[in-house]
Design a protein around this nucleic acid. Structure first.
Lengths: 337, 337
DNA sequence: TTTCCAATTGGAAACGTTTTATATAGCGTG
DNA sequence: CACGCTATATAAAACGTTTCCAATTGGAAA
């Protein structure tokens, strides 16, 4: 409760200069004589002066703070992304205001408005689906917004993603390549475009290319969680035409799938083969270790934040819609070729 | 880039009142005639006025923002905690500025100062160890600081924790109760007081109470990760006096331990029994499911934030050092009694 | 010396609120 | 019908910076 009422004005008096000069010193403005700078710096140190970022924000109209809207930070996936964001934010001297939306439209809109009220310099948004109302708000935003791991559904917003369609195609194809005539697909809600359009269509395309029929029954929707993966697989195992190859839309679901298979007394990869998606740390925390599509969450976050800084600095931007490369990390949930 | 230059003054003109009146309406001050309030509200809606929180913060000296310092948000443990914090923060209309410290003293201090510069109303701190320098800074802080899942090493700071010593005692005792004469303890760095003092001494106390000798060899230190748990257990398995019961300081380490045991061809719980710590979601994502000490991370975060709001509102506080209850969740990594 | 220009420095006006003290209106009372 | 209240509304002063513009200073050139 002390030391904090020291203003730039106190420093100015202490150093025998004007507040404008102190401001210059604090902001590293070169137009200050070295001796003056030193004098001011000493006064700052002596007084323990700490610039008030709120006042600075009001005067300069910049807060060096960016908003981050995430469905749920306790989800390992978004936590990793957030770390990527925060790391490059720190690198560029920004701070992060983090909010959880639970992918709920009203919360998203409310959060967005709160952040704008707080005068953030920019926003990074993650969410399964871009509601039209939200996009309307985005359009009205006075500050730039970048999407991370979120499809830019035809709206012209800067975004960072991987090619989900191709990734799902690759994963399915790899399974088919192992001789399976039938591949199960267990993923999240289809309303979310990443699943409903991209992953799903990649899955179908792979089947088609291989001349295999698409069977409605081979697709089960869950909600990304371990439990929903487990349950989905149990349901599938209950059928006599159960596929012996499974592509799961999420590592967490893939773990559930593997355990459901093992709980039923079968072996992975001998009886069933499984491929996951995301390559979270979970992938190596299971036996057999999970073969999975590598979605570089940390990188997506980092690149999204970097993109935002570019926009904020009006730097040259080669491409607003960044597609990061993906690959499949082969581990033991797939038989050796 | 539009609509955002609308100030309280514009609203005042539009509604034909003074800005003070608009301010009252916006802040729900009761001293406004209903008809005036309505008139103002309409002007606000018509203009799409959004109060500038920065200006408000400068004038009122409150930012309704709190800082959260966390070692690493991509760690599931802290992510859960953060979610608890954010949820009650939202409930009380606060926002969260989140920063990762990697438990590094310099980053912690730097982050703290940045947050104070941004005029946060309070801070929630998580970190393995409280550096003396950091505590010095804490003491100088003009705003309250609450520790979450972080031991208040004799300094008189508000904090929310569980009783780690007792929890470790309970876990070890449960293992001993299963007939083990030797219990392995695999945990994080001992410099961190939670491990070095609390968990470790609970472990030793349980041995003592049971009349069992303490063996240096039975304790291996890792760094909380899956890999370090795996490695530690492999090392232990290499010895011919390897304990058949293991208490791991973290669920993630416990998973590593279980897999090391299984990889060596042994069975859990038949050959080895394992107890973890934290009850993260990982505990049920392994076979056998993990018996573990329940540390309610979400609750710790939520309670810490609630405690902070109490301090900020100058509410009556019964106890600044909150100790939440813990228990052991029995699952399949332990034999049935 | 003077003169002039560049390098420094200072002054004061924003920035958009909240808040305090002050004014005004409305209204029941005597 | 004037009086004194109370309930509302207003005006103006913070809040602590940045920033534009003007003023000053210091030296080099003349």
């Amino acid at each position: 409760m002390n030391s904090n009422n020291i203003t730039i004005y106190d420093v100015a008096r202490e150093a025998g200069v004007s507040m404008a000069t102190v401001s210059r010193v604090v902001n590293g403005n070169p137009n200050v004589k070295p001796t003056t700078r030193k004098k001011v710096q000493e006064a700052i140190d002596r007084l323990g002066y700490r610039p008030n970022a709120v006042a600075r924000g009001l005067a300069s109209k910049k807060t060096t703070t960016v908003g981050v809207i995430v469905p749920d930070i306790s989800n390992i996936f978004f936590a990793d992304l957030a770390r990527g964001i925060e790391d490059v934010a720190t690198m560029y001297k920004y701070n992060i205001i983090l909010g959880n939306s639970d992918s709920n439209r009203d919360k998203e809109i409310h959060l967005l408005n709160t952040l704008l009220g707080k005068q953030v310099d920019g926003i990074i948004f993650m969410g399964g689906r871009l509601h039209e109302d939200l996009v309307d708000e985005f359009k009205k935003s006075p500050v730039p917004i970048v999407l991370a791991a979120t499809l830019n559904q035809g709206y012209d917003l800067p975004a960072v993603n991987i090619d989900y369609e191709q990734a799902a195609y690759d994963a399915t194809k790899m399974l088919i390549g192992h001789g399976h005539k039938q591949v199960g697909f267990i993923t999240g809600p289809l309303e979310q475009q990443i699943n409903g359009e991209k992953k799903f269509s990649g899955y179908r395309r792979a089947l088609e290319d291989a001349g295999l029929p698409f069977r409605e029954n081979d697709v089960i929707l869950g909600n990304y969680t371990y439990a929903s993966g487990l349950e989905a697989m149990q349901k599938m195992l209950g059928r006599d035409d159960c596929p012996k190859a499974i592509f799961a839309g999420t590592d967490e679901m893939a773990l559930g799938v593997i355990h459901a298979i093992q709980d039923a007394g079968y072996s992975v990869p001998n009886d069933f083969e499984v491929v996951g998606h995301d390559n979270t740390r979970l992938a190596t925390m299971i036996r057999p270790k999970l073969t999975t599509v590598v979605q570089p969450m940390y990188d997506i976050g980092a690149v999204a934040m970097r993109l935002l800084t570019k926009i904020l600095n009006a730097e040259e931007i080669e491409e607003k819609n960044v597609v990061l490369p993906h690959r499949i990390e082969r581990r033991d949930s797939l038989r050796k070729d």
